[in-house]
Computed example of a mutant assay.
Amino acid sequence: MLTIIHGADFHLDAPFAALTTEQAAQRRAEQRQLLDRLADLAQERRADLVLLSGDLLDGGQTYQETVQALARCLGSIPAPVFIAPGNHDFYTARSIYAGTAWPDNVHIFSTVAVEGVELPELGCVVHGAAFTTPQADRSPLMGFSAPRDGKIHLMALHGDVAGQGRYGPIDPEDIAASGLRYLALGHVHACSGLQKAGETFWAYPGCPEGRGFDETGDKGVLAVTIGDDPGQVTAEFVPLAGRRYEIRTVDVTGAESVEQALRAALPAAASPDCCRIVLTGQREEGRPDLAALTALAQPYYYSVTLRDQTRERRDLWDRAGEDSLTGLFLRTLRTGTAEGQDLELAARFGLAALENGEDPCL
């Protein structure tokens, strides 16, 4: 049985432009700590292999301490490590992949053509390819077929399954025809879970830590086990992130004030996470003071922003006199058989539908 740690899309040295200069520098330092947690996990799980499927580096600016941390951590892993460069950290003669002295256990794929490395002691072959430019409109899997030689064939690639763009589009039919036991992919920042095309299992681990509010929740890597039989493949998601990005919705309807509603929603203890709080529902007259509310919430999060999507409270029936479809609807509803809460709820859902809204609390 093989145990594999599969990671991708670390995007080390990302700019973190939405944070302060000091916080951005701290976040980049924290990204390097992800590498230590990766190495620790590989040792804890006694991994036979580590497959890193591209975009380890963000590509805009790479700091020397990051390169040193990457080489040190990967070299501390007591197993072969394979890197398939992606569109952000594509391989060139001037890239850090070519210009750095890497530990002996690290192999970096450097060509768009698929290369195979045999590991006789593990009874497997690890295949892989690299982006050599920021874009690639052809799948490296096209036409590939692993030999039926009794070995376990694996591959690390950066690409977009069923994608139509220029980031290594991979046809699921090519995965099914590849003859691979497991295809370790990178590029998609959400964990896909274990997938299958034909007899080939494949997965995206997602990024190991979010960098913005499009990458919320737990992030990490996959611990993959491969048995002797073709169908014996499992993948366990292992969280790795030190901080998370979270979006919280706070409904102010019925609260004495927006401030009261926000106070009630804040955590009991300070959180290490970055949070976006979206205020919704009905409020009394006057727009919320977002600067004051942000100052109230700031001590509870590493970083916090607020967005106001509230509406001023209005009487449910004050538009019944309008010469409009809305007015006609409300007048007709009031003459019907519904009463009390049923009548009010019917009016709210009806107004939401008429005005193309999703929230019935109008």
Score class of each variant (00 low, 15 high):
A338T: 15
E246I: 06
P360T: 11
S257R: 12
Y204P: 12
L180A: 08
T20E: 04
V112L: 04
H158Q: 09
R276S: 08
Q135H: 15
Q61H: 11
I170H: 08
N356W: 07
Y167K: 12
A79C: 09
R72D: 07
S303E: 03
A101D: 09
T234A: 10
P230N: 03
F82Q: 03
D149N: 12
A47L: 07
D315V: 02
L51Y: 05
R313N: 14
A156C: 05
L57D: 01
P205S: 13
I170E: 09
L34T: 10
R313E: 13
Y245W: 15
L56P: 01
L328D: 15
L183Q: 02
T100S: 01
W202R: 06
E322K: 02
C207S: 13
G254S: 07
D251H: 07
L185V: 12
A197W: 08
A184F: 05
H88I: 14
P239K: 03
V50C: 12
F90E: 00
T21L: 03
S303K: 01
S139Y: 06
E246Q: 15
L34W: 04
D342V: 15
G159A: 09
V221G: 10
V125G: 03
Y91D: 00
G327S: 11
I152S: 09
P15F: 07
H189G: 12
C275I: 03
W317H: 10
Q195H: 04
T133P: 01
P230V: 03
S145E: 07
M1C: 12
E246K: 14
L57H: 01
D40R: 14
I77F: 01
Q260N: 13
A29Q: 10
R348K: 15
L70V: 13
E121G: 11
D229I: 01
L279P: 06
M155F: 10
A130N: 07
E259S: 10
S110C: 06
A241P: 11
Y91M: 02
I175E: 04
A93C: 03
A261V: 13
G212F: 06
E339H: 13
H158W: 08
L262T: 05
L345A: 14
R348L: 12
D55T: 14
L306A: 11
A269T: 14
P272K: 11
G99F: 02
D342G: 09
G212P: 07
H107K: 05
E215M: 12
D40T: 15
I96G: 00
A269M: 06
R307I: 12
L290N: 04
R319P: 01
V250K: 05
D149K: 09
F201L: 03
V278S: 00
R94G: 01
G327K: 02
S110E: 08
D58R: 09
G123S: 10
Y167L: 10
N105W: 02
A297G: 02
F144I: 05
L362F: 05
L56M: 13
C361G: 05
